[in-house]
């Protein structure tokens, strides 16, 4: 088994606006199972950060515990990282985001880490609207402990050992919408054409952005009877394609009138949504919830940008947190002294 990736890269690799190649965004070689969907998500994150010309040292990766939470090792090797306690990544992310507004936060979690042990933290993260991108690599099973059903396993899905799941799965995307998330997407690890622009848009969104990614467990959940296998997911995929155009790029793609709608984000970048077979409004939370519910009932997996409110107020804005990172504030600003304390006290009398 190879533990090192050769250093050689294609000499004609394209460079981004910062002069970096995609190789500058890579991490260590993956130790996940060969063919794991999570590796495709890693690759999509690498490509998204490369294409959006993010500076690697201005990104922080956060994770909990699980196969999914090992992923940050395999991308963005030159960025900050925090591998936290099981299900407790939201706390760390909240703290980090408050302490330094200047970084792009990418949280990676799994169905166990989010929908079971971390559920309490997850909903509060949404409620507080922490400015981050939260990606769930959702494979419907506990791959790290040999494939038991997880809380997102669909009703009736058959495990590798033949047991039929008697419980309804938690739909994290619907939950996020219900809880008020400003950006909710769903995608499939095998559909990078959709996943990459979705991640780029999420990173541009000024608030909590959630992406639920169906990511097949190739070892324990890729058999007949599983609802989250590569074949089954492809079979039932109802993908709404999209493009992401950052603010500084001229829009050169031409679409037939009426086939796309553009949504402008706070930083000036634009998400282009290609209308597939149906009318879909990303700005209507109720309609979005309905559409997802309908699709689920019909056995379809609706993917794409499900809901977006570009103007949501994030935690930093709501709490009026200092715009400078705490580590850049001087002693006098952090500890303004008794004169300021006295004036505060005076104000309370």
């Amino acid at each position: 088994m190879s533990y090192l990736k050769p250093k050689f890269r294609h000499p004609n690799l394209p460079t981004n606006a910062l002069g970096y190649t995609v190789a500058d965004y890579e991490g260590s070689i993956s130790t996940l199972c060969a063919g794991c969907g999570h590796d495709s998500i890693s690759s999509a994150i690498i490509n998204a950060c490369f294409q959006s010309s993010l500076e690697p040292h201005k990104i922080a990766k956060l994770s909990g515990i699980g196969c999914s939470s090992k992923m940050p090792t395999y991308f963005l090797g030159k960025s900050h990282g925090f591998n936290s306690v099981h299900g407790r990544m939201p706390s760390v992310a909240t703290g980090a985001s408050l302490a330094n507004r200047g970084l792009t936060y990418i949280g990676i979690s799994g169905d166990g880490d989010t929908a079971s042990i971390g559920m309490g933290q997850f909903v509060h993260l949404i409620r507080r609207n922490v400015n981050m991108t939260y990606i769930v690599a959702n494979n419907g099973c506990y791959g790290l402990t040999k494939g038991q059903d997880s809380a997102t396993a669909d009703l009736g899905s058959v495990s590798k050992y033949g047991a039929v799941n008697p419980f309804d799965g938690i739909d994290l995307a619907s939950l996020a919408m219900l809880q008020g998330a400003g950006f909710v997407g769903r995608s499939f690890s095998g559909d990078k054409e959709q996943l990459e622009p979705l991640i780029r848009a999420a990173m541009s969104h000024q608030g909590f952005a959630f992406i639920d990614v169906v990511s097949p467990c190739v070892t324990f959940n890729n058999h007949q009877g599983s609802t989250k296998s590569y074949a089954e997911t492809r079979e039932n995929l109802d993908a709404m394609p999209l493009d992401f155009v950052p603010m500084r790029e001229e829009i050169t793609t031409q679409y037939d009138p009426g086939t796309t709608q553009g949504v402008t984000l706070h930083d000036g970048s634009v998400i282009h949504l290609h209308k597939a077979s149906h009318e879909y409004r990303t700005n209507d939370r109720t309609a979005a919830l309905n559409a997802v519910q309908m699709a689920t009932q019909e056995g379809r997996i609706l993917t794409g940008l499900l809901f977006l409110d570009p103007n949501s107020q994030n935690l930093n804005q709501n709490l009026n947190i200092a715009s400078k990172p705490l580590n850049e504030l001087g002693k006098n600003e952090l500890c303004p002294g008794s004169r300021v304390l006295n004036s505060i006290n005076e104000g309370l009398r």
Partner: peptide
């Protein structure tokens, strides 16, 4: 091939 993309993702020289 199940088109999991693993080979495309790992290839050091993007072949």
């Amino acid at each position: 091939c199940i088109e999991c993309d693993a080979c495309a993702d790992i290839c050091p020289t993007s072949c």
